[in-house]
Amino acid sequence: MRAGVVIFPGSNCDRDCVHVLRGVLGQDVAEVWHGETALEGLDAVILPGGFAYGDYLRAGAVAATSPIMPAVRAFAQAGGPVLGICNGFQVLLEAGLLPGAMLRNHVQKFQCRPVHIRVESTRTPFTRALREGQVLRLPIAHGEGNYYAPPALLATIQDSEQVVFRYCAPDGRVVPEANPNGSLNNIAGVCSPGGNVLGLMPHPERASEAILGSEDGRLIFESLIAFVESRRPVPVG
């Protein structure tokens, strides 16, 4: 797989994503500067976490206007897998590539700690190798992860199986105590109607090696790699 990791001014998890994809999973990675306007020869695009443009105005709002974004939109519209992690998720929301909006955490503070999320849908390239109901342990690190959608939109998202992850207890129960940020219905990740664009607040790249306490995040990347490889034409002979 050849994945592109988009670097906005203020991205701070770009190097971590590159490390996991290249160093841990042995994939080919292109570092894509936000000022570029084309995404060529890529199998997947990742928008990493951080504070793009300092999160000034609103988290992700200025980054959503970056020169690279039309190319990201075109890539997504062509069915290409796009993964937004944390700030990358916020950018996708602001760019309108994913439904909903992000509010400040209800606890009013940045939250950095491990949480559990439950896989709600396996129809995305990032979760097709997982089980529905599977519980992953991943760290969160954000101040604005309180997912919101107006009632009608929320109903649409839920009805069309666009909720991909929910915060849950270690045993998989989706309970209010497991919600770290006040997110509507414990939503931790949503996808586009087609399923090929996914945004999630927890950081899979920080949980992809045993030495860091969890390897659950790697499952998301491995699922993506398997999806990309499966789409390749089988060589004849």
Partner: peptide, 13 residues
């Protein structure tokens, strides 16, 4: 329609 492709649902309420 939003020129940047934002969902029209944004305006509903």
């Amino acid at each position: 329609p939003r020129p940047e492709g934002r969902p029209s649902g944004r305006n509903t309420d």
